[in-house]
């Protein structure tokens, strides 16, 4: 170990007892070494005394405001449902029935020897006919409590495509996002990104795919940008996420 390295190791307390004693003896015998040691000690001590600074209270206020909006998002969408016209309510009811139909159809088609028990009839009932908040909760609960299972995966996919509420569809994307590192989920989301029309769902899928830091996502994003009829918000999100994937980690 060179002389300067030994000084730094001593200051960082990285020498063992014997090495420390040897170094201290050497310092007593060598004024030049002691001088070099003191210059390191002084500069490092000044650095360590640089106190932490406190940001303005505005930072906390701004974040709390942002967080409040994030927390309120699902509630805002639920409130929007209450002011739908009767005609639109009929559409909503039809969508719920349609989602229920897809889920029940799917369950009927599921192989009986699989881990079918992971989805119980009550869950199907909740996701088909429950309130928006109940459907969101059901989606989160099933993915939080269960390992990735093809039956669950397929069920969540059905919800992502067919639920009448964009919040429930978003919850489905979010839940699938927990497994985006698995290739079948990644491919499922890439396919959905191209099939689903709703911009907010597309944006959530784009962000979810970016988390996986995979070239497939970047290729898909770039291919999508070639389309002229792309929604502006989606286009911006694609640009942002391509940059992230180019620079990421």
């Amino acid at each position: 170990m060179e002389r300067e390295e030994k000084i730094i190791a001593y200051l960082l307390n990285e020498l063992n007892t014997e090495e420390r004693a040897d170094f201290e003896s050497a310092m007593h015998a060598d004024p030049e070494l002691k001088q070099a040691f003191l210059s390191y000690q002084t500069s490092l001590s000044s650095l360590d005394k640089l106190a932490a600074e406190t940001p303005s209270i505005e930072l906390k206020r701004k974040f709390e405001s942002f967080l409040k909006n994030e927390i309120a998002k699902p509630q805002a969408h639920q409130n929007n449902l209450r002011i739908l016209s009767p005609l639109k309510w009929m559409g909503v009811a039809a969508s719920i029935l349609l989602a229920g139909f897809f889920l029940n159809q799917f369950i009927q088609d599921a192989p009986t020897n699989s881990d079918f028990n992971t989805i119980n009839p009550e869950w199907i009932q909740t996701v088909s006919t429950g309130k928006t908040s109940e459907r969101i909760q059901a989606i989160h609960e099933i993915t939080d409590k269960n390992d990735l299972d093809p039956t669950i995966l397929k069920a969540i996919e059905e919800v992502m495509y067919n639920d009448q509420s964009s919040n429930v569809r978003l919850a489905a994307v979010e839940s699938l996002g927990q497994y985006v590192h698995q290739s079948e989920v990644q491919l499922m989301l890439i396919e959905a990104l191209q099939k689903i029309e709703t911009p907010i769902i597309k944006i959530e899928i784009i962000n979810t795919l970016t988390q996986n830091k995979d070239d497939k996502a970047k290729d898909t994003f770039e291919a999508m940008l070639a389309k002229n009829d792309l929604n502006d918000a989606v286009r911006n999100e694609l640009h942002t996420n391509i940059r992230k994937l180019e620079n990421i980690y």
Binding site: S46, K49, P55
Partner: peptide, 22 residues
């Protein structure tokens, strides 16, 4: 800034010296 921490332990000259070195 007006919200710099009052508990800064260095005198202003030394503080500037550390910042310049950084």
């Amino acid at each position: 800034s007006f919200y710099d921490d009052d508990s800064e332990k260095l005198d202003p000259d030394l503080k500037a010296k550390v910042h310049n070195a950084l």
